[in-house]
Design a binder for these strands. Structure first.
Lengths: 236, 236
DNA sequence: CCGTCAAATTGCGCAATCGCAAAGAGCGTT
DNA sequence: AACGCTCTTTGCGATTGCGCAATTTGACGG
């Protein structure tokens, strides 16, 4: 994995080509190309729980996440939030252009302090034509997100709450797992409410489940922190 | 809407450009181009409940549905089927190429007798380059299906079974509704089991709901047939 | 060090929905 | 016309998971 923090820390003026070239969408570019792309980019730093963009906004930009995790969320008329998918560093999001849409259909909310680059949507087609890896990267982005959504639908249709919670945690582990001596820790603050929004249930059920797992030693939790000790026990 | 049956009925040798040009992916083409595309196409006729392709198959072709309805389905290890989305005539499906994938991730099963055209996936990139409408059409196809999946996820996470069943029926109405004097009829055979797979519930719950609706005059059903009399009553 | 607030835990009752089983109905086939 | 098949209906009991409320815990700011 790339260490995108370096970009974030050193600030816009000093963005290095080396970093960008590790991002999938911009692989295999010349130095000059990389520099051009960076010159067109805007850097966003978003505090936890704030949004990169909101559902219904006109889709002026597309993004690549450099650091932090982002939840892509939909809010119902009743005010329930549902997490439709998760974005990890290195991935694109807000790619309405790939859907021939001029509005974002969901809200992108930072799960933890986040850094992203964005470009005006008007550049989308130009990037596709000029940069060979971009087309492929967008397809892969779309593909993996479609698969993620499929899995979620199947899971919600057929699995019980407990299994769905387990799946949500396993997925977070994959995306944001950090090895520690006690087990794999999920690398950003995570409330029961957050998990319930991913699993499509209530925070109560999540709390009960996780208490039970804590008792049997499968995982350990403190406030907003989760460490998974026995991932096998969560997988069905 | 186009009347794709004409294509189906008259057979491959006589496919007419006029029909193809009404399909979104191939809008705005010259006669010569249309002819070229048709020459490369294969016609598929698929009986109800048979598949165009199966989950895991290598994605050799992409399809455009001409006639009939198709369910795109995923099967769980336990054997439960979940309908992830529905394809109506004129739409593309099996577009693994748009997801940078070389395998189908789902099964496409004909809900009713169906006719589709297919092309080898190898032609995908060529079509995108050569035919202006194709790129846009694929983006729209992907976009609308992503939205459909989003809606489904939100719906399954927040709505009760009864509302989900109602939504499934309303969606079918939109896609396959045929006006009759009694109301809008869904234009292909549809079992309780089918509906339950769409709504993510059991056929029993579907049966109960629909009996209730039948009693209050909201809809009328016979074996495998559904006529919706008061669509407003189903919308929340 | 204390006050305040958000997050997490837990018990209890209830409503929704599943699962099973049995019976009935419609349709095509022989 | 009878048979067999699939689809449908319905009742009932078992569970799951939700909703509410009270309590506890931990973090943060002053």
């Amino acid at each position: 994995m790339n260490r995108p923090e370096t970009i974030a820390v050193i600030g816009e003026g000093e963005l290095k080509q080396a970093d960008l070239s590790e991002l999938l969408p911009f692989a295999d570019l010349s130095e000059q190309q990389t520099r051009d792309i960076l010159n067109l980019a805007t850097v966003h730093r978003v505090a936890p729980n704030r949004t990169y963009f909101d559902e219904g906004d006109s889709a002026e930009n597309f993004f690549v996440l450099l650091d932090g995790f982002t939840r892509v969320v939909r809010t119902t008329r009743e005010g329930d939030q549902v997490v439709v998918l998760h974005v990890a560093p290195g991935q694109m999001f807000g790619i309405a252009k790939a859907f021939a849409s001029d509005k974002y259909t969901m809200t992108a909310r930072a799960a933890s302090q986040g850094v992203a680059l964005s470009w005006p949507s008007a550049l989308w087609d130009r990037f596709i034509q000029e940069y060979p890896g971009f087309q492929t990267a967008t397809r892969q982005a779309v593909g993996s997100r479609v698969v993620e959504m499929q899995d979620k639908i199947v899971s919600m249709a057929t699995k019980q709450v407990e299994q769905r919670i387990a799946e949500a945690i396993l997925r977070l582990m994959d995306q944001a797992g950090k090895e520690t001596d006690a087990g794999v820790e999920i690398d950003f603050p995570l409330t029961r409410q957050d998990i319930s929004e991913m699993a499509g249930t209530t925070l109560h059920s999540v709390s009960r489940c996780m208490s039970k797992w804590q008792k049997s030693g499968i995982l350990r939790t403190e406030r907003r922190r989760v460490v998974v000790c026995q991932p096998e026990a969560l997988a069905v």
